[in-house]
């Protein structure tokens, strides 16, 4: 059984002014297996974040199913941890307070919470920052914290919504490398949304390419690159270039307003 299954998902908005129905997601079907890293890639404004928000349970869908371990999803829940682009850390909680938040909601005792937090903070390289507040961290560190906050709950599937999009290019590379290492160590199941082709290919086991609005699955590509991956070696791999070129053509071909948004 797949960890996450998305079957014939459709989403329409009703414009309250005109009363018109606007299709956002045409029809999307794909699944993610246990311990698999899948990226969803598409032009800006194509509705990939909408798919993620539906899976997370933040918004309703019009038709179709979202199943986690075969069970239909209603509303947000701790089985699906979300890493946001804007990191969405709680500014009023310390690093430790943010990391232990989910465990506290589950009712895990304090001692266990803090032990788990210490492990995770070590993993993401934030040991020693426990007492800092989010605004005292750099953008990269904030996003590591956002990742740690979800990892520590050991969700069935991690949903990552363009987590590195608003981070400078150098730091982004480093974060992608670190995320890969963390993934290879822990093997969580990851649903990763991005518009960065290199990022998608480098991180993923499979890449789901969406078309522009109303989005449908244009293609699903198996990324057959060896793990453990490092940027230095992976970029050298001719297959990496093949994948990225292929996706670039795929995206560039159909869509005139890929720049919009």
């Amino acid at each position: 059984m797949n960890t996450l299954e998305i079957n014939n998902l459709r989403k329409e908005y009703v414009d309250h002014y005109t009363g018109e129905t606007i299709p956002a997601i045409g029809e999307v079907t794909f699944s993610i297996g246990e311990g698999e890293f899948v990226s969803v890639l598409g032009p800006s404004g194509c509705g990939k974040t909408t798919v993620l928000n539906i899976v997370a349970g933040f918004i309703d869908h019009t038709a179709g199913d979202v199943l986690v371990h075969g069970k239909s999803v209603h509303g947000p829940g701790p089985d699906r941890g979300v890493v946001f682009q804007s990191h969405a850390l709680f500014p009023w909680k310390t690093v430790l307070g943010n990391v232990t938040f989910g465990l506290r909601m589950k009712g895990v005792p304090r001692v266990e919470r803090e032990r788990a937090a210490a492990d995770i903070l070590e993993l993401v390289g934030l040991s020693g920052f426990e007492r800092k507040y989010p605004h005292e961290l750099s953008g990269g560190m904030q996003q590591r914290l956002g990742l740690a906050r979800v990892l520590v709950n050991e969700p069935e599937v991690m949903l990552m919504d363009e987590p590195f999009a608003s981070i400078d290019a150098q730091t982004r590379r480093k974060l992608q490398q670190d995320l890969t290492e963390i993934f290879e160590k822990r093997r969580p199941t990851v649903f990763f949304v991005t518009h960065d082709i290199d990022e998608a290919v480098f991180l993923s086991d499979r890449v789901v390419v969406l078309s522009a609005r109303p989005s449908t699955v244009a293609e699903i590509i198996d990324v057959d690159l060896p793990r453990p991956r490092t940027w230095r070696e992976t970029v050298e791999d001719p297959r990496f270039r093949e994948y990225t070129h292929h996706i670039e053509e795929r995206l560039g071909g159909g869509e005139p307003d890929a720049q919009a948004g």
């Binding site: 701790p78 941890g81 946001f84």
Partner: peptide, 20 residues
């Protein structure tokens, strides 16, 4: 997003008020 983050970590009802 901040409210969503809390909800996705299992915060419900009155706890949302107090925590977020």
């Amino acid at each position: 997003q901040t409210v969503r983050a809390a909800r996705s970590m299992g915060t419900r009802g009155p706890r949302i008020v107090w925590e977020v």
